[in-house]
């Protein structure tokens, strides 16, 4: 399978602040790859560099083995960007926003009309096509932002915190949309600080902390590293978690602690546990 995105030693400095400390990774074509980390970890900076919005201090990046910094227009044609901030033209209609995007990416009028119709129906926004964006709800705006990025049929889609600030039910609806996009063959790089989002959507996850990738694997492998089950114990110092290779062992420990008067909860290991293990802090 072709490598859609290859990043080698990417560094970004903002003055004296090092936002990225030489990160490297590869994304095979068709994969949904998530960068997971807290605010300020360097997720957005990575996406901004890969989409041509920010210049890197050092490092190289390739889309399908072609250097994106020496061929920026080639790279931009392949990439679609859903930024963290909803950067839609609020005073223009839904249709007009898609029209402008299509023209920006060199599409002819006929292709724009066909593609816009297809995507508006796909996202459930067809009935709103002539409404100004400022009249749409937050969830509709996010859906529009995603389909706008798909207008020119990008082979690589960058989603920067696509569901941040949305209600849980709208978030789940967007997850469905993102999964459908992936099944059409699009390679996706997603950043998020929602653990369950990375766990549900991603084929592989990179933990990004203070500008460094501290772990990279499938969600299952990252979690299995700690075991299968976890026991949370409430202590005067705070919540403490113990990990066990299987649920039976966790239950035995929980029983023992419970008899000793401790308050305990048994649950399965999640990505947050793995993140905490690798970085020493929560997302």
């Amino acid at each position: 399978m072709a490598v859609a995105v290859r990043v080698e030693g990417l560094v970004k400095d903002y003055g004296k602040l090092r936002a990225l400390s030489g990160i490297s990774f590869e994304i095979p074509e068709g994969e949904l790859f998530a960068l997971l980390g807290p605010n300020g970890a360097g997720k957005t900076t990575t996406i901004r560099i890969l989409t041509g919005l920010t210049r890197p201090t050092a490092g190289r990046a390739f889309f399908f083995e072609r250097d994106i910094f020496s061929s920026p227009l080639y790279a931009k044609r392949l990439a679609g960007l859903v930024p963290q901030a909803t950067n839609l033209d609020l005073e223009l209609t839904v249709w007009e926003n898609l029209l402008i995007h299509g023209l920006l990416f060199g599409m002819d009028r006929r292709s724009i009309q066909m593609r816009a119709r297809e995507l508006l129906e796909f996202s459930g926004l067809w009935d709103r096509r002539n409404h100004k964006v400022k009249t749409l709800s937050g969830g509709m705006r996010r859906r529009l932002l995603i389909i706008r990025a798909l207008m020119h049929e990008p082979r690589i889609l960058f989603l920067d915190e696509p569901t941040v600030g949305l209600d849980p039910h709208i978030r789940r609806r967007l997850w469905g949309l993102i999964k459908q996009i992936q099944t059409r063959g699009t390679t996706i790089l997603l950043t998020t600080h929602y653990i369950e989002e990375a766990e549900f959507l991603a084929d592989r996850v990179a933990f990004l902390d203070r500008g460094r990738i501290v772990a990279l694997d499938t969600p299952q492998n990252l979690m299995t590293h700690l075991g299968e089950a976890a026991v949370d114990v409430v202590t005067p110092e705070g919540l403490k978690t113990k990990f066990f290779p299987n649920r039976e062992e966790a239950e035995r420990e929980a029983m023992k602690l419970s008899r000793a008067g401790e308050t305990v909860t048994i649950r399965r290991v999640n990505l947050e546990d793995a993140f905490l293990h690798f970085t020493g802090r929560k997302v």
Binding site: L53, L81, A85, L104, G106
Partner: peptide
Amino acid sequence: LRIFEEFQAAP
């Protein structure tokens, strides 16, 4: 509006 980023990301 941050529309300028849409222009910057376009070819």
